[in-house]
C-alpha cells in the first residue's frame, strides 16, 4: 500500500516529493510544453530555503521574476494580476522575504492539481511506467 506508485496517486505533493515521480512528471510536462510551471514550483521551494542575508538571494528572486513572471510565459498567464504586482513591487523595493513567492506558488499548484496532475495520472507515460 505504501509503494511509490500508491503515493503518486495520493496527491501532487507526494508525487513531487518522490524523485522518480518528480522526474516522470517533468518528462510529461515537457511533452505538454508546460514544464515551466513545475520548475517555477521547485524554484519557489528552493527560494524559501535561502538565507535572506545572502546577496545571492536577491539575485535569485530577480531571476525567478524575470524568467517566470515578468514575461508572458505559462506561469505568468496562470497568476492573478495582484500576485504579480506584489512580487514586482517587492523586487523593485528590494524587500525580499522568504514567503514572497508563496501565493504565486499556491496559485500554480492549484492549476497543476486540477489539470496537469490529473492528465498525468491517465497519460501513457505514467501507465507505461506502472
Amino acid at each position: 500500500p505504501d509503494s511509490p506508485l500508491a503515493r503518486w496517486t495520493k496527491s501532487l505533493h507526494s508525487l513531487l516529493g518522490d524523485q522518480d515521480g518528480a522526474y516522470l512528471f517533468r518528462t510529461f510536462l515537457e511533452r505538454e510544453q508546460c514544464v515551466d510551471t513545475l520548475d517555477f514550483w521547485f524554484a519557489c521551494n528552493g527560494f524559501r530555503q535561502m538565507n535572506l542575508k545572502d546577496t545571492k538571494t536577491l539575485r535569485v528572486a530577480k531571476a525567478i521574476y524575470k524568467r517566470y513572471i515578468e514575461n508572458n510565459c505559462i506561469v505568468s498567464k496562470q497568476l492573478k494580476p495582484a500576485t504579480k504586482t506584489y512580487i514586482r513591487d517587492s523586487i523593485k523595493k528590494q524587500q525580499i522575504d522568504s514567503i514572497m513567492f508563496d501565493q504565486a506558488q499556491t496559485e500554480i499548484q492549484t492549476v497543476m492539481e486540477e489539470n496537469a496532475y490529473q492528465m498525468f495520472l491517465t497519460s501513457d507515460i505514467y501507465l507505461e511506467y506502472v
Binding site: 518528480a22 521547485f42 528552493g46 539575485r59 535569485v60 531571476a63 524568467r67
Partner: peptide
C-alpha cells in the same frame, strides 16, 4: 560571478527530491 540562469538552476535543483 554566476550568471542568472546558473543561480536559478541551482535554486531549482536544491529543491528537487534526492534519491533515497
Amino acid at each position: 560571478i554566476d550568471s542568472e540562469d546558473d543561480l536559478l538552476q541551482e535554486c531549482i535543483s536544491s529543491a528537487m527530491p534526492k534519491k533515497k
